[in-house]
Write a protein that binds this DNA or RNA. Structure first.
Lengths: 211, 211
DNA sequence: ACCTGAACACCGTTCAAGT
DNA sequence: ACCTGAACACCGTTCAAGT
């Protein structure tokens, strides 16, 4: 008989590992069955833990959804920054366009993430950390706009208003696409998607550069 | 003892009345508790009927939600047309702007309706009648765009692409507003809302008129 | 034809009890 | 400190049974 060395089981979550495991499990459910497929009990089962265990790490289901949304915002922010790194020396207009294309592409690539992030009512009271993650994404856009105004590449105006215009356009486009509301045939493949995104932002940005 | 005249009880639904009553009940639940507060059982109870009764009139919960969304699309279409009647002799640009303002205002006035209409995943497989209702709303916008192109007030181009640009902008703006994602202070009252809506569409429409 | 009541498989949430 | 199991109040959905 071998000496029994006390060790942790592979499926025992101490030290807050369970929190992370639940977020991962929630993401998996989200990817498979969408928002309707996401349940606390399901996530607990995937994590190999009883249905009551999550409540040690999350106040309620909303708290788990908020944690997932936060993760999504970080991914979105990273995607926007990555897209900007692709054109470091471009004009502000070109960089705004690149960010816009990235925004829409992110939504198309990760529709479940995108929906959780912008589910609105999904999380009744968004925690401060979620709001902060959202602000950071918004900051990427806003910083660009401010640069554009300061350098005279964009018309003078309230940065928040110009940011809202750009954001609204790409956000609406992203939403309509993942909700399958765009006329079929307009967006079949990735190339057409980029082309449409570029075309629409171009239209707006002519107005933004304007006068 | 009075002669007992056979009559229908006030809370008995024959002749398909229950279908309508369930839609109304669903709307009430939607207005009170949002999408999370909408349940088939709850609607049945509001209609004064057993929890199994709705299944005589709706295949499943999705079918009820779809019926509500259809109603919402009709209201939206009516709102857009009403807004256009306010400026029958305006330029296409002015009329597009009016329709855009109406679109955003509708979302702000009826956020629950708006969310159900554009919930995307909410209804797994939208029935043809729901798609038709959506197309009619889209048609109001598209007809305007076509008029604008034909009269030379808008640049030449694919009507669907120009429509998509306009729709994306107002749809994104509406979504961001009802999800409370716009920087606070930017939109406090109805006047500011109209002003912002008008400003943003103006920016885009300059691009659309363009060249 | 239309509705009811019981039943089933799922939820979210709480709480005493275990280690 | 962290997890389990039973329990409760809710769901959506089905089906035999009633009128």
């Amino acid at each position: 008989m071998a000496i029994r060395v006390p060790r942790k089981k592979a499926d025992s979550y101490q030290h807050g590992d369970l929190r992370h495991a639940l977020i991962q499990a929630g993401l998996k459910l989200l990817g498979e069955g969408g928002v309707r497929g996401l349940s606390l009990r399901g996530a607990a089962e995937l994590a190999g833990v009883s249905h009551a265990a999550p409540y040690r790490h999350f106040k309620d289901k909303d708290a788990l959804v908020a944690a997932i949304a936060e993760e999504g915002f970080r991914l979105l922010t990273a995607r926007l920054r990555q897209e900007l790194e692709g054109c470091p020396d471009g004009t502000v207009i070109a960089r705004l366009q690149a960010a816009g294309i990235g925004y829409v592409a992110f939504a198309v690539d990760h529709p479940a993430y995108f929906r959780v992030i912008f589910a609105g009512e999904l999380v009744a009271e968004p925690p401060p950390s979620l709001k902060a993650a959202g602000q950071e994404s918004y900051g990427v856009l806003r910083d660009l706009i401010v640069q554009g105004i300061d350098s005279g590449q964009l018309r003078a105006g309230d940065p928040d208003e110009l940011s809202l215009a750009t954001w609204s356009l790409v956000h609406g486009l992203a939403m309509l696409i993942i909700d399958r509301r765009v006329p079929p045939g307009l967006i079949d493949d990735q190339a057409k998607l980029r082309q449409i995104s570029a075309g629409l932002t171009q239209l707006l940005l002519e107005g933004l550069a304007g006068r």
